[in-house]
Amino acid sequence: MTSPADWLAGARPRTLPAAVAPVLAGTGVAAFVDGVPLGDLAWWKALLALVVSLALQVGVNYANDYSDGIRGTDADRVGPMRLVGSGTATPQAVKTAAFAAFGVAGVAGLVLAATTAWWLVAVGLVCVVAAWFYTGGKTPYGYLGLGEVMVFVFFGLVAVMGTTFVLTQTWEWPALYAGVGIGSLACAILVANNLRDIPTDTVAGKRTLAVRLGDERTRYLYAFLVLVAAAAVVAIAAATTWWALLGLVFLGRAVAPTRAVLGGAQGPALIPVLAATGASELAWSVLVAVPLLVRG
């Protein structure tokens, strides 16, 4: 029997900050551009956007577990336990869990679409399709080195700008800049994950971007993404309030994982980097969002 603790581990809770961060950032931008008191902000929409983001993240984690598991990619893992690869849960059960999570995201998304704009349904469907075909289907794009691109687009640009839009029903430049910052750090999480898995992915035929770039250039890519996130803070501050520069304090949290990556950490030594990068992304979103909420 698969225990609740096993299902929780399979949901990969260390990746969930990547789902919370874009909603925080998008809400901060919305509060600033609308200039409304915090009590008048449509917080229920922000909460629904958070449900959508978290459910999609859990869904893609289970979907990845299922697809990699049935392909045998997770047969020899360095990182945390996988439900299918370890035999802890059946492939069908994990697949069902993935679509249940997508269903939760769909219901919350429908409510947002009904109260904002119906074309958001199409955006939601594209998000679910992208989540499934990351490692699912006959030609998963995650195996072609496109995973980072999709993470940047969906867990960065779409998530942040979408949150701002459902709250303001307008398109805002600061939301774009925030999407770039959040997307860069979300990509950094995946880059660190794929850097760790280069040896096993190479054997399994999984041609991730890390496999294509090689070990050294992947490490430089990680550091570059952290710098992009810092540049995005400056762009947001220039477009809103200079108090947003408080977001640069996230670099204090990002120093240790960046040093580990550039220092040549391998295998299990990269596992803490994933959690630290997720914490850096969450810190980025909080430190940027709070000044925007207050000044707004």
Rank of each mutant, 00 (worst) to 15 (best):
T96V: 14
A89G: 02
N193I: 14
W118F: 13
A100Y: 08
L292K: 09
T2V: 15
L41T: 11
M161A: 04
A210D: 01
M150H: 11
L8K: 00
F155K: 12
F224H: 12
L50R: 01
A100R: 07
G87H: 01
A114V: 11
A105E: 03
Y177Q: 12
A131S: 09
G278E: 07
G69F: 04
A265D: 08
T139P: 05
G156N: 11
A256H: 09
V153K: 06
L120S: 04
V228Q: 12
K95P: 15
V191S: 11
A97L: 01
V203T: 15
K95D: 15
V51W: 10
S184C: 13
Y134K: 02
G162F: 12
L270I: 02
G59L: 00
R219T: 01
V58Q: 00
P199N: 01
V294Y: 13
R82K: 14
I271N: 14
R207M: 05
A30H: 06
V233D: 06
V121L: 14
G264I: 09
L48Q: 02
V58H: 00
Q169G: 05
T218W: 11
V286H: 05
A46D: 07
D215H: 03
A159S: 10
G278A: 12
D201L: 02
L56M: 12
L282A: 04
T163P: 10
A31K: 07
E148A: 10
P4C: 03
T139W: 12
A256S: 12
L293M: 13
L227E: 15
P268Q: 10
I236D: 04
K206H: 05
A5V: 06
M1F: 09
A113Q: 09
G267L: 08
L248G: 02
R82A: 09
